[in-house]
Design a protein around this nucleic acid. Structure first.
Lengths: 180, 180
DNA sequence: TACAATTTTCACAAATTACTGAAAATTCAG
DNA sequence: CTGAATTTTCAGTAATTTGTGAAAATTGTA
């Protein structure tokens, strides 16, 4: 499978970004090619398109599966496995958010809770615990929020994000309503 | 500077997480010790606390400065430079969000725009462009949203996050109000 | 200005992470 | 059940990233 120049440059860019997104170069490139191609792709096609070894593709697919970012499908009369990305970009975004939260927040939340259970050994530990408490509360709110996001339809999510600066005004309105 | 066991374990944890947060182990540890200690710290203290070389600390501080995560201050009668984190945890969160956006979204947004300007070479490129458009729109909304966040006070931000599942209901209410 | 204290830079070394090819394991059509 | 097709694993290697010490640059006081 040969990539068009447009695809080529997008794939290269997503490769660069991959590492900044907690994935890595190859994973970024692989996901780019899967997301940006309409037809489901098999491992050999990805391997050829990106000029990387078949085994590397296998490992990458394993990782993408663990992120729930790809869908496996079969094509009648073909024994190979084909992969595609969700057609709804909001579904991809929701998945990315929840998976990153799992990896970036959940373990920390648990460590922070442990620290809060400990007995402070001196006044310095007391300050530490105070900060830990603040971080914990903040992260817990973010967690609740991302959970909420999981239950929202793409339409609703889109409407929420479109609010943009409106969110600030909406909050004010809410306060007014409750003050009555 | 010797770390208490509580600090020690928190610092180790934030080291582990550092790499998942787009920083790296040392940067995570450094920021943990700065955030969790009340008094401002100088490079030698950090170097000693984390058992890493003075030059490594210097590079780490440079990086933390570029993230706007630390404040430089001077202590009367001492020529050394001392660093501390903002006391408001929400300020730290806001900074993290905007800096990650700069690194993780802005460059991609620009690449996506470039791809949208190009002339599709065939129907496959047309599909690609359609997806690029979707990603672009989504990322632009997120950008607007994070900008909005920058202008919000810690109190308001906290109130917004506390809404939790309330946000969904609030959105419904908003629609009702507008439908009248 | 001179110089000691402090910070920064940078070439190299160490550590970590990613990639490959070969071999093992699995899958499924006949 | 067999065996060819396909996927996965894994040990070794390659590439990248991170950390160090020595030297250079900067800072600020006397």
């Amino acid at each position: 499978m040969k990539l068009t120049p447009m695809m080529q440059s997008l794939v290269l860019h997503f490769g660069e970004m991959g590492s900044r997104w907690g994935l890595n170069r190859t994973l970024g490139q692989m996901y780019a090619v899967i997301v940006l191609t309409e037809a489901p792709l098999n491992a050999d096609q990805i391997s050829e398109a990106l000029q990387i070894s078949r085994s590397n593709v296998s490992m990458g697919l394993k990782e993408l599966k663990s992120w729930n970012l790809i869908k496996l499908q079969h094509i009648p009369g073909d024994r190979k496995e084909y992969f595609s990305a969700p057609s709804d970009i909001w579904e991809i975004a929701r998945t990315l958010v929840v998976e990153r939260r799992k990896r970036e927040l959940d373990p920390t939340l648990s460590t922070l809770r442990d620290a809060l259970m400990e007995q402070p050994s001196n006044e310095s530990d007391e300050y530490t615990q105070m900060r830990v408490q603040q971080m914990h509360d903040l992260m817990e709110m973010v967690t609740l929020w991302t959970n909420e996001m999981q239950g929202m339809s793409s339409e609703k999510l889109s409407a929420l994000l479109k609010l943009g600066e409106g969110i600030s005004k909406l909050l004010d309105v809410k306060d007014k309503l409750l003050l009555r």
